[in-house]
């Protein structure tokens, strides 16, 4: 647990020192959401209908930039080698990095929600808690496999292209469940399906976090 907190503190310190990059990432999220809105045009019903999808597509696109950047920090001067030579366990390192990525994805999600509400005329006043939980589980579901894959590709020159190619198919279940839950929160849930989708998100998180935690050591050693 100490290793996880130490890695988290390290990443938080680096992100604070280079906070312009976080501002750029949040700006990118807003740009993507606005582009979706412009592409649909002034069709309020269509915008409201697909608000959840825009939110999560924005999150997905931001996640590839974020995951590539946070892992490149470890590999650009081979700091990962120095980390591996400290008495730090590979799973501890993974959970620290993945938690740091999750927190940043939550930040992107929380910043994106107000714009989605305004642009898509979406309503969520009654279900803020459920939406926050969806962002929490969806962000975590993107971060765990994303951290593993970004580490796997970190030494390759075409990593920025390869990361979405490898990551997107893997996180389709998370995106589908997150979009569905968000849409149910925003549009209403007469059939009471939210809990089932949320459970599905939770299950995928459990699988991704445990599996990636085990595999991370092999990936960074290779």
């Amino acid at each position: 647990m100490k290793t996880v907190l130490d890695v988290l503190w390290k990443d938080a310190l680096i992100e604070w020192r280079a906070r312009a990059r976080t501002v750029a990432l949040l700006s990118f999220a807003y740009t993507v959401l606005l582009l979706f809105a412009f592409a649909i045009g002034p069709d309020a019903a269509a915008l409201r209908q697909h608000a959840g999808a825009y939110l999560w597509l924005g999150m997905l696109l931001c996640s590839t930039l974020l995951l590539d950047r946070t892992m490149r920090i470890e590999f650009e001067a081979d700091a990962i080698q120095r980390l591996l030579l400290t008495p730090v366990s590979a799973p501890g390192l993974f959970f620290g990095k993945a938690l740091s990525n999750t927190l940043q994805l939550w930040l992107v999600g929380l910043f994106s929600v107000p714009l989605v509400i305004v642009v898509c005329d979406a309503s969520l006043v009654e279900h803020v808690g459920t939406l926050l939980l969806t962002i929490a589980l969806g962000g975590a579901g993107l971060a765990a496999p994303g951290t593993l894959y970004s580490a796997m590709l970190a030494r390759l020159s075409g990593r920025q292209l390869l990361l979405p190619l490898m990551l997107f198919p893997l996180v389709v279940p998370v995106i589908v469940a997150a979009v569905k839950t968000t849409s149910l929160v925003m549009l209403g849930d007469p059939m009471e399906q939210t809990d089932s989708w949320m459970l599905l998100l939770l299950c995928f998180n459990l699988v991704y976090w445990s599996l990636c935690g085990v595999l991370f050591g092999r990936v960074v050693e290779a």
Partner: peptide, 19 residues
């Protein structure tokens, strides 16, 4: 687990540029 007792100063410096 000898790793914690080995230090390597390689070609790459292993430092964080932003810190």
């Amino acid at each position: 687990s000898p790793r914690g007792r080995i230090g390597l100063m390689g070609h790459e410096t292993g430092v964080y540029e932003d810190l």
